[in-house]
Computed example of a mutant assay.
Amino acid sequence: MTEHLDMAILSAYLDNELDAAAQRHAAAHLAGCPQCRATLAELDGLGQGLRALACPELPAELQARLQRPFAPPPVRRVSAPRRRSCSACCSAMPCPASRRAAHPATTCSPSSAAPHPARSARAPNSAT
Rank of each mutant, 00 (worst) to 15 (best):
1 M>W: 06
3 E>N: 07
3 E>F: 01
8 A>V: 12
9 I>P: 00
10 L>E: 03
11 S>P: 00
12 A>V: 01
13 Y>T: 02
16 N>E: 08
18 L>A: 03
20 A>E: 15
21 A>C: 02
24 R>Q: 15
27 A>C: 02
29 H>T: 14
30 L>C: 01
33 C>N: 06
34 P>F: 04
35 Q>V: 13
37 R>K: 11
38 A>T: 00
38 A>E: 08
38 A>I: 00
40 L>M: 09
42 E>D: 14
47 G>W: 02
51 R>V: 04
52 A>K: 14
53 L>I: 11
55 C>Y: 10
56 P>F: 02
56 P>A: 11
57 E>R: 15
57 E>D: 15
60 A>D: 13
64 A>E: 10
65 R>K: 08
66 L>D: 02
68 R>C: 03
69 P>L: 04
70 F>A: 14
71 A>W: 05
71 A>T: 02
75 V>E: 13
75 V>P: 03
77 R>I: 10
81 P>N: 10
83 R>M: 10
84 R>N: 07
87 S>N: 08
89 C>N: 07
89 C>T: 09
91 S>Y: 01
92 A>M: 01
92 A>C: 15
96 P>N: 05
100 R>A: 11
100 R>L: 09
101 A>C: 04
101 A>W: 00
104 P>T: 15
108 C>S: 08
111 S>N: 07
111 S>Q: 14
112 S>E: 15
117 P>R: 11
117 P>A: 06
117 P>I: 08
119 R>P: 03
120 S>Y: 05
123 A>F: 10
